[in-house]
Design a binder for these strands. Structure first.
Length: 332
DNA sequence: TCATGCTCACCTATTACTTCA
DNA sequence: GCTGAAGTAATAGGTGAGCAT
């Protein structure tokens, strides 16, 4: 018996979700997304430096590099490699509309439908959650020359050694610093992701279960989440996947164990039968060669004695009643 | 070429919070 | 309204890999 065990199953898959999100949205509304893949030449000289450091490693599934460009600034990029991904108006394709910018309140991010819980939910989500870019990640893209940093960043505020995730941000999507926010922020705030956000992340996860920094950033912007939140979501999602897979494997191994136990019992019984047969009818041993046959399907053994001998009653109902291909074992 | 330190992404365990029956 | 279980966002600590020196 062969047992196959698969734990984890993290087979890297090519990145598809971004392209997918493009096609799924561009045909419906005026909102599309523009993604530029791979071939680029040092956008503002910043990203290259960024990527040349440690960030270029860890590319398990990172087959593509994504650069988010805005406006018509993609001159340094091979136009043939562009995919629609970032929000832009089809009517005025040169003017991009970013959902995280105040003037773009009328457009929906890709993947967020305009139905119930769609735009309204997104706007609500924006008001509640947006605005935040972690310091380290914001700093990575916050070069004044970087086009990627054209949206306002939010930098965390540390209070009592803990970071206030809702620091300053004057973006209109940002959550206003209310009295509620001014409460003691030592207790960590846990924000529930909306259904739309979860669904979109889930779709992304189906395409690839790890993110490179660019994908993380793009996803974070699409969903108006902090990159850290996207990262954490993927980590937790991987953990859940692994846990579920472990449970499945455990169940499978449990059944295998039961099957093998049964098999072991049956074989023991078979062995006892044969031993009993051998001890109770020793005269058989005096006879010419006896043929022991085994049915490969039911795996029971029967003796096919020479014509003059009657097979033992204990085993006649096995091979004799089967029309199976028998394996003959010559015994003495 | 090897050792070392830094940075990053990831994993795992755990905590803290939310939702729901 | 209270409570416990389940789900999950977030945190902390550890590990391994790539890179620079």
């Amino acid at each position: 018996m062969e047992l196959a065990l698969s734990l984890g199953g993290d087979i890297p898959k090519p990145i598809l979700f971004l392209e997918k999100s493009s096609s799924s949205n561009s045909s419906t509304k005026d909102v599309g997304f523009c993604m530029v893949l791979g071939k680029y030449s040092s956008i503002e000289g910043h990203e290259d430096n960024e990527l040349s450091a440690g960030r270029r490693k860890r590319s398990r599934n990172h087959h593509q590099e994504i650069i988010i460009s805005k406006g018509s600034s993609s001159s340094s990029i091979d136009p043939s490699l562009q995919l629609d991904l970032l929000p832009f108006s089809r009517n005025t394709s040169s003017q991009l509309h970013f959902p995280w910018l105040s003037q773009n309140l009328g457009t929906e991010p890709a993947g967020i439908t305009n139905g119930p819980g769609g735009k309204a939910a997104l706007l609500d989500m924006n008001r509640r959650q947006l605005g935040a870019e972690e310091a380290e990640e914001g700093a990575a893209l916050s070069s004044p020359n970087s086009e990627i940093s054209s949206f306002q960043m939010k930098f965390p505020i540390y209070r009592n050694g803990k970071r206030d995730e809702w620091g300053n941000n004057q973006n209109c999507f940002s959550r206003a610093i209310s009295d509620e926010d001014n409460n003691d922020s030592s207790a960590r705030k846990k924000l529930r992701l909306t259904k739309e956000q979860s669904a979109f992340l889930e779709e992304s996860f189906k395409e690839h279960n790890t993110l490179n920094p660019k994908q993380k950033l793009a996803l974070a912007k699409q969903l108006n989440l902090r990159p850290r939140q996207v990262e954490v979501w993927f980590q937790n999602r991987r953990a859940r996947t692994k846990l579920k897979q472990t449970e499945v494997d455990c169940e499978y191994l449990k059944k295998c164990c039961e099957t093998l136990t049964e098999e072991n019992k049956r074989l023991h019984k078979e062995l006892q039968e044969l031993r009993a047969l051998k001890s109770s009818q020793p005269f058989y041993m005096q006879l010419p060669a006896t043929t022991l046959t085994m049915c490969p399907s039911c795996e029971r053994v029967a003796t096919t004695a020479p014509a003059a001998n009657t097979p033992p009653a204990a085993t006649t109902n096995t091979a004799a009643n089967h029309n199976h291909k028998l394996i003959s074992l010559m015994t003495k």
